[in-house]
Design a protein around this nucleic acid. Sequence first.
DNA 1: GCGACATGGCAACCATCTACGACGTGGCCA
DNA 2: TGGCCACGTCGTAGATGGTTGCCATGTCGC
Lengths: 327, 327
Amino acid sequence: MATIYDVATQAGVSPATVSRVLSGKTVNAVLTKKVRAAAKALGYRANRTAQSLRRQHSKLIGLIIPDIENSYFTAIARGVEDALEPAGYSVVLCNSDSDLQKESRYVDVAVSEAMAGIIIAPANAKTDLSPLLDRGRAVVVIDRDPLTVETDVVVLADRASASELTNALFELGHERIACVTGPADVETSVQRVEGWRDAHRMRGIDPAEDLLVFSDFKVAGGQTTMQRLLDLPNPPDAVFSANNLMGAGMIETLEQRRQQVGLAVFGPLPAGAAVPRSCVISGTPGREMGRLAAERLLARIVDASTPMHRDVLEAPILPDTRSRPLA
Amino acid sequence: MATIYDVATQAGVSPATVSRVLSGKTVNAVLTKKVRAAAKALGYRANRTAQSLRRQHSKLIGLIIPDIENSYFTAIARGVEDALEPAGYSVVLCNSDSDLQKESRYVDVAVSEAMAGIIIAPANAKTDLSPLLDRGRAVVVIDRDPLTVETDVVVLADRASASELTNALFELGHERIACVTGPADVETSVQRVEGWRDAHRMRGIDPAEDLLVFSDFKVAGGQTTMQRLLDLPNPPDAVFSANNLMGAGMIETLEQRRQQVGLAVFGPLPAGAAVPRSCVISGTPGREMGRLAAERLLARIVDASTPMHRDVLEAPILPDTRSRPLA
DNA sequence: GCGACATGGCAACCATCTACGACGTGGCCA
DNA sequence: TGGCCACGTCGTAGATGGTTGCCATGTCGC
């Protein structure tokens, strides 16, 4: 591998000059030309490791998400990349699997790789960001609001959107509406439950707390929960699913059993889904969220004293058409 | 950030000893204890950047895939992680979007970050791996066989499985079977077409070349292609989709238009899919593929002279049940 | 001729690893 | 019992590749 010294020798200048030319500082036009030619001839690419060591931070951004197989999060990854790639950063996508241990290992890697910044959707409320914050690393929290720590935050309007979805079920004529949400220690889970409750309260109805289930935000959880609900002595006539994957799992069960209930799903179903007759779905602007989070992060990397932002993105109900985008 | 010097001072030893303790070389037990205590007290974590610079390679593995929103590739990512994480490596997931420019940018990053190895599903046949191979970096190619270059390769039995799927449609009584595949410059695309042709030949039938469509391996491509096929004067009575996303798009169209045709899909449909009545689906062992690729890579990192392997994984037809795994 | 400014080179620096050398101890032989 | 040799263990210092503060040199203008 050609080093900056090789280029310097070839061009007949010092390594410092090569460095200056390649990082765009003012250098005599003749030398600039010579350096450029030498670099090209040798196929020189700067050693990022050495750069990172000297500069004390790399051109890597960590993106830690709890489920790589959820299209919502992959959409976020896309958005993050949209914004970061033009700025010369590379995204390191890490799947924490909602596992605190795995997550903290990735946080450690982010620290010891001297990554320029981190965008993280915390596994749950116990996620520890202090290794990053203590060292003054740029951090943006997405999707799940930690409430306590002070970072930039980009989240969805979970509660409002959940309420809107539940309300739409009422308007379709449903009366007994179950709520299937994620783990109780995840902020989005509880917020969406609150939205489900809100919709009841707005109509002066008591939410059917016996129909509130804490599941796992995954396909399998949606499947088994729907089975359990359908087998109840007094089953619900509609279900609100607090995320997309559980919604897909529920449909899977409904298809298998050839049954129908009303369904409201937070987040778009995958393409080709067997959408039930009575069904409302909200869009989740994942890509937008990723883009915004990346912009906030870039601003903070450039100037650590940038004031904190807390962005709340709408997740409106999608028009009833079959052509739902994947994310 | 505490450095190895801080730990050395605190423990009253030289930095070299600290390094030796932390990398498990034999050191006097008393000193070992002191060093460990000092490291813990200071919250020391080794600076990976400096390590990488010194060792000439990092603990990062690049995984370059053409579509992050395809569950097949995310399953691969999971498998790769399964195998690499216990070995102390971190995966850098890069989405090339089937774009040669983006892809080559990521290859450049891999080189200049001194990544320990690369697993890549090439965007198409023009993918250039020479920057990696010339520098002797460990490379494993997955999913799409470059045929020419010499690397470890892990692929699916594209042709055989495509043939099996098409044949299953014949056995369900279909006669006029369209084939919708990906871009013509992608190896898996053409292999799967060959499989579709094989199934015809085995029955002494001429494949309906007018029903062969090169599309994009994406949902939208499946949707529009299915529309076009259905609107033909002499439409097919079944369609073979050469990947999962296009299959989902086709179902989307069928649902919208409330039409039915036979369908064979290479790769599992997403959960909750509206599976047509006459439908066969093959499984794609993505996670397995990822795991295997990672193992091959690790072997090559340890010993660059390991003989090349070419692994071909079966993609068998799934039993006809609704409970299809996501990948 | 002197001062101001532009420009490029020297060398220190980033954090870690490791070859080499120094030192100490223990054993063996005279 | 003393001296020498061998071995084991730890410290010193150089190397990894690129950046940048500081200084020397050169040029231009007054």
